[in-house]
């Protein structure tokens, strides 16, 4: 994997530590592994931490069934703390390596009108390996839609 693609672009990324993966399962060790992968993919200088993070991270507000529990206003009020954390990083991309987190964080940007993009980790790994297809870029912003795209024609 390489982060060369982002050396000149300098696009900033932050990462959400999923509660289930980190605090509730494998702890700071897996959070550090996650950072190793993210920094390898986007470049260490383009990674911005949220604080607090790792085992002490705030839940995004989408877990525990909240996305389907029928209290959308409460769910989004809960998510404001995550919203503020993401905004404080100044990053234009938030990597969410969990389905609940991805849905919730994507919804927070959409609902409250913020500009960050919410992406799966697999998208960026493939982007950095130069093998991300055209139809696999739904969550990327305009700045990355065409990057490294091999056209079949």
């Amino acid at each position: 994997m390489t982060s060369d693609w982002n050396r000149d672009l300098g696009i900033k990324f932050t990462v959400q530590d999923p509660c289930q993966l980190v605090r509730k399962s494998l702890g700071d060790e897996i959070a550090n592994d996650l950072r190793f992968v993210v920094k390898s993919v986007v470049g260490p200088e383009n990674f911005v931490e949220m604080y607090p993070c790792k085992s002490n991270n705030y839940c995004c507000g989408g877990g525990g069934g909240a996305l389907q529990a029928g209290f959308p206003e409460a769910r989004r009020a809960y998510g404001l703390r995550k919203r503020d954390q993401i905004l404080a990083t100044g990053a234009t991309y938030c990597i969410a390596p969990c389905h609940n987190c991805h849905s919730q964080i994507h919804d927070l940007a959409d609902h409250f009108g913020h500009n960050w993009h919410t992406v799966h980790l697999w998208t960026l790994i493939c982007l950095s390996l130069g093998m991300l297809g055209e139809n696999e870029r739904a969550y990327l912003g305009g700045d990355l839609k065409g990057l490294g795209l091999l056209l079949a024609t």
Partner: peptide
């Protein structure tokens, strides 16, 4: 209290 469905069971309260 419907709060039990708003809590995401994230375990941060126990963590601290």
């Amino acid at each position: 209290t419907p709060w039990v469905w708003m809590c995401t069971l994230c375990k941060r309260c126990q963590h601290v």
